[in-house]
Amino acid sequence: MIEFSTWDILRNLLLAARWTVLLSAVAFLGGGLAGLLVLVMRTARRPLPRRFALGFIELFQGTPLLMQLFLAFFALSLVGINMPPWLAAGLALVLWTAAFLAEIWRGCVEAIPRGQWEASASLGMGYLEQMRHVILPQALRIAVPPTVGFSVQVVKGTALTSIIGFVELSKAGTMITNATFQPFTVYALVALLYFVLCWPLSVASRFLERRLNAPHRHH
């Protein structure tokens, strides 16, 4: 029987953690861009984009991320589209993140007083111009802490992709456990690595919240 040192375990987990980081980044950036699009539709004046965005958000907030991963992975294969696990994982996480970020940001947009919309409309600006120059710059300030806070959820959400066979930190943990028969050591290290990834984000979120709520916020 081969002996595995703790360093062997940690080294392999660290290698797998790169995929967790990459998947989190893809989910967060892709979800951020898609979320911005959903947000603009969700707050649009026309009912059609508004309804579409609402449906999208309800669908992804109202079903477990796990089901979304299964559907992205298996359902698309059923209709003949071959989905490699990384693509299914990336796709599902991007859409899931987009739905949550759009809703978080909508709250921030709606926190901007109505007078800002009215003043910019009175100056002849159209909806996208109002958003771009007046509303979003102000909404951004209040959106930063909850957005950074949500990124913690994204990192932890990537763990679920192990179910469809994407080898990230959790999946690597399972595989290493099967080889070493040391579940406690392995999963403790897995948990520790997640903590190392998430904790700085939580701290940053709290720091930004204090910083951006300071009385004199500009300059």
Binding site: P113, G115, Q116, E118, A119, S120, A121, S122, L123, G124, M125, G126, H133, V134, P137, Q138, R141, H218
Partner: peptide, 29 residues
């Protein structure tokens, strides 16, 4: 929008854009 280029409006609560300087407030539109 064409109409609003013809009539300006001033509000009770001023509604200046708080993230922009006075000059930028005037320049924006």
């Amino acid at each position: 929008r064409a109409l609003r280029l013809k009539v300006g409006m001033i509000f009770q609560q001023f509604n200046l854009f708080p993230h922009l300087t006075a000059g930028r407030n005037v320049m924006l539109s």
